[in-house]
Design a protein around this nucleic acid. Sequence first.
DNA 1: TAATTATTTGCATTCGTATGCAAAAAATAT
DNA 2: ATATTTTTTGCATACGAATGCAAATAATTA
Lengths: 343, 343
Amino acid sequence: MATKKITSLEVAKLAGVSQSAVSRVFTPGASVSKKTNEKVRKASSKLGYRPNILARSLITGKSRIIGLVVAHLDNYFYPEALELLSNALQKKGYHVLVFMVAKTAGNIDDIVDEILDYQVDGIILASVSMSSNLASRCTAAGVPVILFNRTQDDDRLSVVTSDNFLGGKQVAQFLIAGGHKRIAYIAGWEGASTQRDRESGFVDELKKQGRSLYTREVGNFIQDDARQAARKMFTNDEIPDAVFVASDDMAFAVMDVIRFELGLKIPEHVSVVGYDDVPIASWPAYDLTTIRQPANRMVAETVSIILESIEDQDTKPRRIQIDGPLIMRGSTRISSNASGENE
Amino acid sequence: MATKKITSLEVAKLAGVSQSAVSRVFTPGASVSKKTNEKVRKASSKLGYRPNILARSLITGKSRIIGLVVAHLDNYFYPEALELLSNALQKKGYHVLVFMVAKTAGNIDDIVDEILDYQVDGIILASVSMSSNLASRCTAAGVPVILFNRTQDDDRLSVVTSDNFLGGKQVAQFLIAGGHKRIAYIAGWEGASTQRDRESGFVDELKKQGRSLYTREVGNFIQDDARQAARKMFTNDEIPDAVFVASDDMAFAVMDVIRFELGLKIPEHVSVVGYDDVPIASWPAYDLTTIRQPANRMVAETVSIILESIEDQDTKPRRIQIDGPLIMRGSTRISSNASGENE
DNA sequence: TAATTATTTGCATTCGTATGCAAAAAATAT
DNA sequence: ATATTTTTTGCATACGAATGCAAATAATTA
């Protein structure tokens, strides 16, 4: 009921000093004598005073809020990243304001406007891209923008991804080395750079080794779509003997279809490879061979870039690619006659 | 570089009106003539003006920010809830500021202090509880607090949970009806009210039907611990023929141990029941019988309570229990000779 | 048309904190 | 003890928008 807010002025009165003195006590690096400091601290804790971050932001121009836009919280890679991100930023005195966006990402721009309304110090777009026009707006407002797990050709934006092209390539090499002949691909949402890069790395390498895709379907990074894609792909006369699925999340759905709907065995009848290495991939029920996206390192880079950009407005946007290893597990077979296929 | 902020004053100048006029145009329900409205809108969009939420908050005392404290983003129930929550609040013009807290929840109080610094309009604690002292602070500050999926005896706090006691009871009834004789339980973290309620509902019903727990281990709502618990539980001479695991998340780990480490069959050798009904539970690889926690309804209640409390400071805290059904799937057997066991 | 009422508008102040500047106090040097 | 330098302090103002109040304008009525 009694909604009373303790302000610096009241603390000042109790401590017998000026409001500025109180402010200085709570401003690191300001000039305050030991005695004043003590008086103020005492009065503050007596009244339960804490500085109002919003009022402070108004004058400093820094809110210590980072806006985060996420679409796919259902793909476990993102909650994991969010947790790491939030923890890392928290340690630095920042906090994350979350903005969810429809998976069928449309009007990101409106959302970003909302974010800017909060005077955030920086913006992280997880698996989402923004219009060039809006990028200008952010730049003009001095708000650094970082794309996380998504690329875009705009040198005003920083980008942190895994090396998706290399990842795709590694999968191709691995599958060919494993002696697979009919190699298929289930794509993610084709608007996503990660999808495109994974696929072109994959297909490029196949070509380089004189192969080509046996079948291709689209799963849009959505489990239901992936299931559909799998059903279509595996009801032909001659099914693929290996399939690379553009994300672990979809791969699980695909494996379920292969095993429980079609009664096929993994990897005996078909090898499955995913992408991300989310925790579930290592659960024995799936035991999925996959490319690891090192969420921790990606997050660490993201945080360091954003903090640097905030502290020094003149920091140039950076583009970081972190490569992750192929994690070999039981969902893929390794034939013994795998050899001699290097160009 | 050119960090220029457009303020209402600049818009006012361009539009040839006063700053107050601009403010009124952006304040729903304020008195503005059609003509002024047009002039201001025009000038605003020309300059790209948007009101500064922080400055507004300072004077209105409302930030349109909701603080959310989460611990277990690795249990899929929470990302799901977060997504629903954020979406629902977004629709109402609110946004979620996320605070992660260690799973071994200790100093929640410090975190809540940080939250209050942001002048949030409300606080949601997901699976986390707070000291009574701090509850007073929040009440005094006029900030409503809602516990999500966790109870606590404090009538200043609102609480939204599923009916965990009833859930536990349902599981007991179901397992007994299924003809199980040696019924075990793997507990969550014992500091959690959800854990306690699930267990007491479960054990109470067993007793009522003249049974008792065959074995009990603790999994702390952590997969690794659950695995350990399962190993211990299933290496005795006579293993349980049914086990109720306090969360789906742990149940998956337990199932993996049972099947892949111990080579037992589910449900032939042992039935497994979980709690939450996260999406993975319905994946055929697990096909887990479980109690559904209706995240959508829980979130809807949470949002409606928090908004109501914000709009009307005199709203009394509420305690909502939403009951969820038992979802019968393939991880439990239903024996035919299940009968005559009522007291 | 004049008188009365309803709407708009601008002025000035407020929210809570930070900070440039000049005065005061303390510390140091001469 | 005095002069000089350094540190601390308070005053006053600024941040950007919202709002009570009174003046100005428009709409309504007689």
